[in-house]
Simulated assay, not measured.
Amino acid sequence: MEILAPFSLTWAIGHLLAVAIGLSLGLLGGGGSILAVPILVYVMSLPTKTAIATSLFVVGLVSLIGLIPHWQQQQVNLKVAFTFAPFAMMGAYGGAQMAALPFVTDTVQLVSFGTMMLLVSLLTIRKSHRTRSQRADLDDSNPFKMAILPIIGAFVGVLTGFVGVGGGFAIVPALVLLAGVPMKEAIGTSLLLIAINSASGFFGYANQVSLDWQLTISFAVAATVGTLLGGYLAQAIDAKHLQKSFGYFVFAVAVFTLLNP
């Protein structure tokens, strides 16, 4: 694996883009891995599996830090998170183990990544006008919501482990459209779930790749700056506009990835 010299032009560009990863996480509650994997593959020249493992570490750590302003604003729904998380963790570890199968090449993972982004972006754009304002009500009177969150959690977890996404691209729409969580609360809750999912997926890759820790830590520091800024900017932006922007953003990255597997 080619290692870029610190402070080279490409290294600097990659780290400026890492700030954008953080902004995406802090502002939208997801999209960090959607940016991180392509940046690490196409800009930093990492092999796909190494990029995925690096992305999971960086995005998980940065999501945990980015959670702070959302927690302070009481925009984290712990009841939803604890319903979702255990199944997502199991799925993430299992997805990482699936990535070790012989037929799972870099191209297979990148095409899977792009296809899923495309589908989710279209769903998000189409339903962005339906953003709900009520809080989620996950009690015995809502058995459908209680049942659907673990299923979604397991599905998102598998995607986290297999293609290296923290899951915010799917978690945010799922919490808003299916569980009725207000958009800004879904963003804060998503950051907690991304951190949990990413940690589980990362441990699934632990015996498959060797990370460049200097790059990994410097990338995480740059992304942290962005996510803290994004978390505070999120207070001033309308939730409906956030969801629509999120959908178009994911669509653009999906098209790029599918054209450059």
Rank of each mutant, 00 (worst) to 15 (best):
M1F: 01
E2Y: 12
L4G: 09
L4S: 12
L4Q: 14
A5D: 07
F7N: 14
S8Q: 11
G14E: 05
H15V: 02
L16R: 00
L17T: 03
I21L: 07
I21N: 12
L25W: 13
L27T: 04
G30N: 08
I34A: 13
L35N: 07
L35T: 00
A36R: 10
V41L: 04
M44P: 04
M44K: 11
L46V: 03
T50C: 03
T50P: 03
A53K: 03
T54I: 09
F57P: 04
V58I: 11
V62I: 08
V62F: 09
S63D: 00
I65E: 00
L67G: 05
Q74M: 07
Q75N: 11
K79F: 02
A81I: 11
F84D: 06
A85T: 14
M89V: 13
M90S: 13
Y93P: 05
G94I: 14
G94W: 13
A96G: 15
A96N: 06
Q97I: 11
L101R: 09
P102F: 14
F103T: 13
F103A: 14
V104M: 14
Q109N: 03
S112K: 01
S112L: 15
L122D: 00
L122M: 14
T124D: 03
K127N: 15
N142W: 06
P143S: 11
M146Q: 14
I151D: 06
I151N: 04
A154W: 15
V163P: 07
V163C: 10
V172K: 07
V172W: 07
V176L: 03
G180E: 02
T189V: 01
L193P: 02
I194C: 06
I196L: 13
S198H: 08
F203P: 01
N207K: 10
Q208A: 14
L215A: 08
A222W: 03
V225T: 12
G230Y: 03
L233T: 09
I237D: 09
D238V: 02
L242Q: 09
V250M: 05
V253Q: 01
A254D: 05
F256Q: 05
T257P: 06
